[in-house]
Design a protein around this nucleic acid. Structure first.
Lengths: 211, 211
DNA sequence: CCATCGGCTGAACACACGTTTAGTGTTCTG
DNA sequence: CAGAACACTAAACGTGTGTTCAGCCGATGG
């Protein structure tokens, strides 16, 4: 029995949402069909009836999550040009913390997707990588980013740094004392990241120069 | 039946190693005691005989991995002073790729530890975070790193960027076309990271100055 | 009004899992 | 050299799993 959030959703959607939350929190393997059914307030047989199998449910959840992530980008896709202005790095984590309700299971689900080498996760990563490269190229062209010696690696580095905040959210929270996906946390984080991306984190050795 | 690498190791160690590799590759839950036993060339009952239970085995593997990571640091602990010279950021990933044999399951196991919220992983992260802070403080004191506005966040950012390379190894490899934990990959990666940490990734807006 | 169909359920099934048990050799030890 | 201790196994046990099955109920439509 569950309850939370089933405000006139179809049973199928309720099951999908329950599965999303449970999968995100504890991993696909650790969650049983019976638990999902209980959380959704339905019988285990209904889960199979709607999704064919547990794997089918997993695929549906993957698709739903991927769609939700895409919607996130579409939402702010226009601001992509603004990001190119260069006075702020458009961060995945900032996007998440602004567009997602505080208790959303999506960041944790993304973590699972990327961790398990799930095709859905690789797909997402590939698309985001392409986006990052385009963004970086655009910024370089506009002169707000210096030309990179190895653009492919630089784009990967920037993307991966961004994802790390989501992947290691819990560990970071424990270390710095504030959840980095809350508005307070993301502010502190972004300030420091921006500083480093603008001024570097180490000083140049004497006699060195930026090329 | 297995074989690989049981060159006069005790059966207990063989089981532990097989479990380490399988856990790293597929996750604790997805691996059965029977598989581990088969991989180690022993009976399932012997696994329980030596480790009490599957959870006991898991704890032993955790401890073994933690010890291996600590040894990695002890190995190069003296170079910590050298790292302070500031002409190179001592990177976890570089340490890994230099000290570990190419096929080592340890990076993948570390990924599991950190991303499953395992206490062993949190412990490791906490210790590495403390180390990073000390390192950064030392560098600031010596004038090779500029003072950070928020040292706690800056240290977390540096550590997390480093770990991201290990966490997303597979995705990065797919994106840039080379495994970043090989010597070729780590070289390309380190060059770009060093450049960003020295010179930044974005140019300063007009009228801005480093404080 | 009856037939049909889809959402939904309780009970059961087959199976794979971690673990137990009872036992066999082999190796220490007094 | 007896006997305890140890490494190890084959077979079985109980449990929890994903899934199936037969059927109920309410709405739809001819």
């Amino acid at each position: 029995m569950s309850s939370v959030g089933d405000g006139d959703l179809t049973a199928k959607a309720t099951i999908r949402n329950a599965a999303l939350r449970l999968f995100a929190d504890r991993g696909h393997d650790a969650v049983t069909v019976r638990e999902i059914a209980a959380e959704a307030g339905v019988s285990p047989a209904l889960v199979v009836h709607h999704f064919g199998s547990k794997d089918g449910l997993r695929a549906a959840v993957d698709a739903h999550a991927a769609h939700a992530f895409d919607a996130l980008f579409a939402l702010e896709g226009q601001d992509l040009a603004a990001a190119l202005s260069g006075d702020n790095w458009l961060s995945l984590a900032e996007l998440f913390s602004r567009a997602l309700p505080p208790g959303s299971p999506l960041p944790a689900y993304l973590r699972r997707l990327l961790l398990t080498g799930d095709p859905a996760g690789s797909d997402l990563f590939g698309r985001w990588y392409a986006l990052t490269r385009r963004l970086l190229d655009g910024m370089t062209e506009m002169g707000v980013a210096p030309p990179a010696g190895d653009p492919a690696v630089r784009a990967a580095f920037l993307l991966v740094n961004d994802l790390a905040l989501i992947l290691l959210r819990g560990q970071i929270a424990a270390a710095i004392g504030v959840d980095p996906l809350t508005s307070e946390g993301i502010t502190r984080w972004a300030r420091e990241v921006t500083a480093i991306y603008r001024e570097g984190a180490f000083v140049l050795a004497p006699g060195e120069e930026t090329p």
